[in-house]
Amino acid sequence: MERLPKPLRPHLAAVRVLAVLTVILGGLYPLLVTGVARVLLPHRAGGSIVRADGRDVGSALIGQSFTGRDGAPVRKYFQSRPSAGGYDPLASGASNLGPQDVVDLPPDPRAADQAARKGRASLLTQVCARSKAVGELEGVSGARPYCTPDGVGAVLKVFPAVGAPTRVVSVNQPCPAAPFVAAYQGVRVECGRRGEDYSAGRTVAVRGDAHAVVPPDAVTASGSGLDPHISVAYAELQAPRVAGARGLDVRRVRALVRAHTTGRALGFMGEPVVNVLELNLALDRER
C-alpha cells in the first residue's frame, strides 16, 4: 500500500473494507442466523410451509386467495383478508392510500394520459365495493357509512368551495348513474361527467345512517399485504356460508374456527385471529 500513489490509497482501503464486510455480513452472518434458527425454530426457519396430501400448499405466515379461475370466491372456503400486493412476498406492502383518498378517478378512454384512461378507485370506494361484495357473498347487508348503495364512496363536490352552493356533483357516480342523494342544501345533485375537472370544488363525504355488519378486516388490506389471518368476527360471518356449501352443521364449522383461533400475543397484545389456510385444510379433512 505504501507503494501506491497517495490518492489511490483510500480507494484500496475502501475496497478491502467492502470485501471483508461482504464476507462477514453477506455470508457468515446469514449462515449463522439461519443455523441458529433451524436449531431453535425448525418449523419457522423454513418459512412455515404447510403440507397437505404430500405436497406444499402454502405458508402459515403468508396469506393466499381462495378463488376460482374466474376470480370469484370459492364458497366452500373461508376467504382471506384483502391484499394490496396479491399476497406476493416480492410485492409486500400497502396501497399507501390514506383516509383522505375519497375521490375516484373514473376511466376516460379519451384521455391522453395512460393513468387517466385506466382510472383509479379511491380507498373509500375500494372499501365500499369490498363491503358490498362481501355482503352479497355472505347474505348480509354490505352497507357502510360513507358508502352509496351501489358500492362507491358517498362523496360530493360542492361549488363554489366557499359560500352557498350553486352546483353539487356526486363525483364517484359517473353518468348515467343516479346520485345517492337528490339534493344537497337545496341544490340538485348531478352525476359525475367523465373527464371533467372537479378539483376546485369542496369535498364533502356524506356519512349516512348505515350500520356496518361486515368487519373492517374484510374490506381493508393489511400493511404487508401478506396477513394470513382474519378476525374472529370475519370468520364467524363466513361460517354459515361455508357450512352450507359443504353440507356441514354450522356448529361443527364454528368449532373448527375456535380450534384454529390464536389468542392475543403475550396475552394482551392485539386481538385473537384465525389462520385461514389451516382452517380451510381442517375443513377439507372433514369427510
Rank of each mutant, 00 (worst) to 15 (best):
V36M: 13
G139L: 07
A212D: 12
A121C: 02
R202H: 03
P30S: 10
Q79V: 07
E236W: 06
S231G: 15
P107G: 06
V103I: 14
L105Q: 13
Q64T: 11
L18R: 07
V253D: 10
V102H: 08
P272D: 13
L41P: 00
V232Y: 11
K118R: 13
S131D: 08
A133Q: 15
G223N: 08
A94V: 02
A265F: 00
Q114S: 14
G195M: 07
S65H: 04
S224N: 11
G98S: 13
V189I: 01
G142A: 13
L4C: 04
V257C: 05
T67E: 15
R44D: 15
A121L: 15
K76S: 14
P176G: 06
L41G: 00
P145Y: 11
P10A: 02
R117L: 09
A37M: 12
L90R: 14
T262G: 09
A154K: 01
S122G: 12
P73E: 11
I49Q: 13
A129C: 05
V204A: 02
D284I: 04
D197V: 06
R55I: 09
L283V: 10
R38D: 14
A37V: 09
G263V: 02
P107L: 00
P216D: 09
A72P: 05
N172P: 11
T261F: 05
V250S: 05
G225Y: 05
P89E: 04
H11E: 06
A133G: 09
G135I: 03
S95N: 12
V50D: 05
S80F: 00
R51L: 11
L123F: 14
N275T: 00
S131I: 03
Y29W: 08
P106H: 02
